[in-house]
Design a protein around this nucleic acid. Sequence first.
DNA 1: TTGTATGCGTTATCAC
DNA 2: GTGATAACGCATACAA
Lengths: 341, 341
Amino acid sequence: MNSRKRATIYDVAKELGISPSYVSKALNNHPSVGDLIRRRVKEKADQLNYKHNSHAANLRRGQSRTIGVVVPHINQSFFSDAISGIEEVCFARNHSLVICQSHESYEKEGKAIETLIHQNVDCILISNAEETISAHHLRQANKNKIPVIQFDRCLDDFDSFKVVNDNKAVSYEAVRSLIREGYRNIAFLGGPSRVKTFQERKEGFIAAIDEANLPIPYNFIVENALSRERGRQAAMPLLKLPNRPDAIFSVSDYQSLGVMDAAAVLGISIPSDLGLFGFADETFAQLVTPSLSTIDQHSVELGRKAAELYFQHIYQQEQMPETETIVIASEMRIRQSSRRQ
Amino acid sequence: MNSRKRATIYDVAKELGISPSYVSKALNNHPSVGDLIRRRVKEKADQLNYKHNSHAANLRRGQSRTIGVVVPHINQSFFSDAISGIEEVCFARNHSLVICQSHESYEKEGKAIETLIHQNVDCILISNAEETISAHHLRQANKNKIPVIQFDRCLDDFDSFKVVNDNKAVSYEAVRSLIREGYRNIAFLGGPSRVKTFQERKEGFIAAIDEANLPIPYNFIVENALSRERGRQAAMPLLKLPNRPDAIFSVSDYQSLGVMDAAAVLGISIPSDLGLFGFADETFAQLVTPSLSTIDQHSVELGRKAAELYFQHIYQQEQMPETETIVIASEMRIRQSSRRQ
DNA sequence: TTGTATGCGTTATCAC
DNA sequence: GTGATAACGCATACAA
């Protein structure tokens, strides 16, 4: 009885004197099975400590009821919040999640996708790594009949559902708020420019500068400096210039942290000598001194939307989906770092 | 050819005019397959865009080469770092990870375990939720032949490998350091006392107080106040007392954040009026003002060790493992919040 | 070296 | 309502 192997529907069937297939139907709430039997089957299954074997079912069904998620880092609030949103929706639909980190590496991202293909996930939700240059791995997934949904960091040359923020608009607003505070010499610290998200943030920046009739500070535009360390490295030379920027609009909070590091070293005080704006509203943004003005991306909502897209437009559909881009409104959180009082 | 279904070893075999089982062996680097054939098989497999189907293999093998991880929150540095350590080891061993969050809820934790059982994971690594009262779910896993390894937050009444910090010793050291700074009236903010981890931190606290011949401040000991909010709620009444504590030793950085909130509201300044020590060395600990003294748990190492335990003592072993507790040394990070200068 | 046969646990189809 | 049967894709014991 309590042997070394797990109970199967066969065991349940035998105990009950009915057929395995009938047990299967009962367990799956098939309409052709009466209430009484179903209850009895479930009871017996519990009693035998029967557990559904997903692998067998997946093999048979050809789908896994599992969604793969690939993000750069699970410990950045933006991503972990997005995952929470995804989790919520998937959980409600009885799907499980396999979460992978790319650690911003293209190679690891590729391996993650590979693993997810092996695991036969029904869909892949991805926010691309900083390093990611090509959509080759995403095409691989598609080739293997796995739809891909991109969120936040999307590759422009790969068609898929995309869920992003109103990056340009909110960046425009943020830079305008800097200008309103009297900052005039505003620098831009960006991300990898092949990712549309960062392009758009730059566009918003430029639009605001332009609209204020300020000269576009091309020598104050640095791209591809996402991390804290890279932010510091990018800010350092800028802040050493004789005619240095009096504010920095940065596309990530971690990057902003780097700017703060540089400013501290150079004895430049924020916000009086240097205005600073981040992006993402990471946990620490309100905790640093001065508190960091930033953009709340409504990432839970964003993740939720990405998952819903799967269930509404792909799940149980025949074809690969149309492509569409969903925009999630974000919101400024103006704190001390951008307020010159 | 490019039909709707994915290629299988049958397709590869047919193309090559050999048998499927031989293809399987070739793909798995079975020694009985010659170099030449193996290369040809792999080439053809690539060409047909063949992808190994884990579900089928798992079903056949009866094991999934997948490890399940359950943690309260993936966005707390301690846990995400531990996961990085686990990931590293598993990746090297060609195992994949399924990560679940309990969100500190016992119910969700139970569901996560349930899912992992369905998924037939080979082992479960868990750090228990704050709410978790019983090891029933862990026993469930064991009943289904899935070994469990606990890390950090372990249940005392469930036998398993455990990987923990030297909680008592380091807490003792931390409290001693507070005493050395001249604090005398030290309060303790704890976690759920049924979790040994938190018990031990309390023991360390008491040992240090005791050793300094200070009276044990029983009315200054609050348990079960883990989050920022709960930390604030616990600190508030303490700090309002006429004879209030002049320092707080807290078992979590988030909790410490709550103390800072309370102190700010009451106009109590840290560290001059109130010393503060946290636990975990979260990202924000060095970013807040004043910077937070805390304990670096070496969580990457801790996660790595937990995963290694699986591979060294359970993987490919016959029996359920012996139980053993591994201790990872932690380290104080003394910053401003506990330095009275 | 190579191939054959079998079964992992489930579910879908079909027949009763 | 109920049950027999086949098939999902792979890996292994065994035979050749």
